[in-house]
Nucleic acid binder design. Structure first.
Lengths: 200, 200
DNA sequence: CGGCTACTATGACCACGGTCATAGACGGCC
DNA sequence: GGCCGTCTATGACCGTGGTCATAGTAGCCG
């Protein structure tokens, strides 16, 4: 996964994100993270003196940056970009993963929110930050495609919400049905908005 | 919360759902459930010999039935029901809770999915079942409002996905912004579809 | 070489939590 | 009353997991 030659610290953050999105925060152990990253257990307390909380927060932030960066990739990959096309690409990343991996893991930010939002303030803030650093590029892409500025961020929030929710249902059903359905329904609506079609 | 006079068993299921949606499955202890339900600890193993797994599964199923039943209430409460109006009502239930409770808990089904989808098959199935028993009444309501039958279930999935995702973001941000935004954006789109407006 | 810093390595502590085992209380029914 | 099923009550076991403490290793600099 193109992670081979990063420092051990980044590998641990990456591994934490991977494990969290599969098993949730509570069920992910520090020892487990170390093993998954191929890193010594002692390095955890060395790089993350803040303990599990710090590790989780960094994993969440990492996931947010990753998701944000993907948006630019999706835009580059489209001949004639449209809002619906961008959304379809965002969804396809997940359906593709299901095809290849055979199993659908979740979003680490979602997992952190569900598990920590009420208990750990800093993690809640990290999750909010991650959503923000994900929403911004989406909204930016929308404006680049001609969506009015004041609609861009609301629509970006709608897109991410639908994706996260569909991902949840897809995991429960062990089936990409919800993801493809949401893409099939929402994408045309987004394009209709962008072309200024009659909505409201 | 109108739970006062139910049997102790149902109270425990209810309490489990409440605690799960706040702290997640992993962080919710059996002892904690018993205390919250005002029930003796020994009753847990008596009513739920299947242990925590059984309790969680029943809590998830209960939440699914509850959500499904709410749909009928929402329909009754609307003078001239529209898909967008139904969605707005579904969202409002959550924003109202935030106003009154001051804190936004999540959806127990979402929490169970995030925490157990990969580890506990039965819970994953319970979550899938819960989404199904929630989606069905929504789709039924849509058809009653004139939405073509083949579009009803996909749109219901879109509605629930958006709601779940927005709820996630709202929890992370400790703000109903995402919920109101999604309602404001998606509701008109849904009505446009229902009235057969130009979308795709 | 001595010492310092960065990192690795492991064992131990301790709290938490799910489960089991056992036994006590209540209430109906023969 | 004596019996039994339902429910309540509580203590104990044991695995798990986060954290702390303590060394050990490697490399650099003076």
């Amino acid at each position: 996964m193109a992670v081979s030659e990063r420092g051990p610290r980044e590998r641990m953050v990456f591994s934490a994100a991977q494990l969290i999105r599969r098993h949730g925060v509570g069920a992910t152990g520090m020892r487990e993270v170390a093993v998954h990253a191929g890193a010594p257990r002692g390095s955890l307390q060395h790089y993350f003196p803040g303990g599990k909380e710090q590790l989780v927060n960094e994993a969440v932030a990492w996931a947010g940056r990753y998701a944000g960066r993907r948006v630019a990739r999706f835009m580059e990959g489209m001949a004639e970009p449209t809002p619906g096309g961008l959304f379809a690409a965002m969804v396809r990343q997940w359906t593709d993963e299901y095809e290849t991996a055979g199993l659908l893991a979740g979003c680490p930010v979602a997992a952190a929110t569900v598990d920590c939002a009420d208990a750990t303030e800093s993690t809640r803030e990290a999750a909010a930050g991650a959503f923000a650093t994900w929403t911004a590029p989406v909204a930016g892409a929308l404006t680049d495609m001609g969506v009015p500025t004041e609609r861009a961020e609301p629509l970006a929030t709608l897109m991410i919400s639908s994706l996260e929710g569909a991902l949840l249902i897809a995991r429960a059903e062990r089936d990409t049905r919800a993801l493809t359905t949401v893409a099939g329904e929402l994408a045309p609506m987004l394009d209709a908005v962008a072309t200024g079609a009659a909505c409201s």
